Simulated scan of single mutants.
Amino acid sequence: MSTDRLGDLAGAGVSIWLDDLSRERLRSGNLQSLITDKHVVGVTTNPTIFAGALSHGEAYDEQVRELAARGAALEDAVREITVSDVQQGCDVFRSTWEATGGVDGRVSLEVSPLLARDTDATVAEALDLWKAVDRPNLYVKIPATEAGLPAIARTLAEGVSVNVTLIFSVERYRAVMDAYLDGLEQAAANGHNLAGITSVASFFVSRVDTEIDKRLEKIGTEEALALRGKAGVANSRLAYAAYQEVFAGERWAALAAKGAKVQRPLWASTGVKNPDYSDTLYVTELVVADTVNTMPEKTMLAFADHGELVAGGDAVTGTGPAAREVFDAVAAAGVDLTDVFLVLEDEGVDKFEKSWAELLDSVKGQLDAAK
């Protein structure tokens, strides 16, 4: 067996992205070493990641002092700090972006989570971030809330590449893919080159197990308990089956003929929350070509150490019927799946709002200390 397990994973067609970015990673050369040694071809960020980065180390001190000296407003300071990190990240990945024809080498920057229920404000900020970062390998990250769906389409229509985040249910994922096709059709009507627009759809995995496992344990029957740890992977496999269906359709074929690229599924929230489960569960069980797995570094290193691929390197294709059986069994056990997905979306937005508040507080404290 190969000792380069992440290399084998990449060889199976999975794009390995790091779910983290900080100025310390950029300055120390850590990010570059992950690209060189661990086959990393992209980075995702979110408010929680930036809040953590700003609260540790001294890497931001110089910029904070400069911002304080010119009396920058708090939200403007946060914008400049995060944009600067993302610009540097994009520059590190520029050669990857070029080598993959714009498919990989991407860095994501999220619109403010405070705008998750406001379509017009989300579009305005997405376009502002695109202009501020001014790098062709940026992904503007927009949540897949009901208000986010039209914002995704309108942002794509302006030629801006989008990472759609906080997708939990297959039903909402289908709406995301529809928004992608809407956006590309409008982009073509607006005269944009479709070959230059790409997107990923970030389908969350571990949080699904966390919520459903909690409910299965409350039900407590033998049948319910036997289903723990199965819903997250099954949900993702059902999402992949939906992806295959949509991107084999006539509507997509018309866009592909104009140079459009598919919106790849991205497995997000792949760090295992339950210590009873394999620490590579959400990587090993979701290996399939033309997908992205964005991992915390801990998960990435775990796979590098002892991760395994199934025979043939495809753990997903053809698994839709078995995944449906899992979900039918979960529902039959008494889990209200509609409520599960509503709770997960609300919690996802709420968590990022709290992280955004922490980020603002952290920067405010540093600005005050620098005055």
Rank of each mutant, 00 (worst) to 15 (best):
G159E: 13
P150D: 12
H56T: 05
E285F: 01
R27C: 04
E146W: 13
G183K: 09
L184I: 06
F203R: 03
L149S: 13
V111C: 07
L67G: 00
A12Q: 11
V86Y: 11
V83K: 12
I142Q: 05
L194V: 04
R215S: 08
T294M: 05
L227I: 04
D336K: 09
A195E: 13
Y173M: 10
F168Q: 11
T210S: 09
L149V: 12
A302W: 02
A151F: 14
E345L: 10
A10C: 01
S161R: 03
A241R: 11
A331H: 07
S278C: 07
S278L: 13
V208W: 02
A12W: 02
R65S: 05
L184N: 07
V335I: 11
I219L: 14
G320P: 00
D279G: 09
A147C: 12
V316K: 11
A99K: 15
R207I: 09
K371A: 15
T122H: 07
V103P: 00
A189N: 01
A256V: 00
F204A: 03
A126I: 09
V349K: 01
W267Y: 13
A69Q: 00
S95D: 14
D368I: 04
G229D: 06
G271A: 12
G318D: 12
I197A: 11
T119Y: 05
D37E: 11
T291V: 11
L34N: 14
E222K: 10
S2Y: 10
V170F: 10
D120M: 07
G148R: 10
A175D: 03
F50D: 13
T338A: 15
D104N: 07
A144D: 03
G105W: 06
A144H: 03
E222Q: 12
A311G: 04
A121M: 14
T280W: 01
D305K: 15
K258L: 13
D128N: 12
E222H: 05
V103C: 00
R79T: 11
L286P: 00
G334P: 04
V14Q: 15
E75L: 14
A331Y: 04
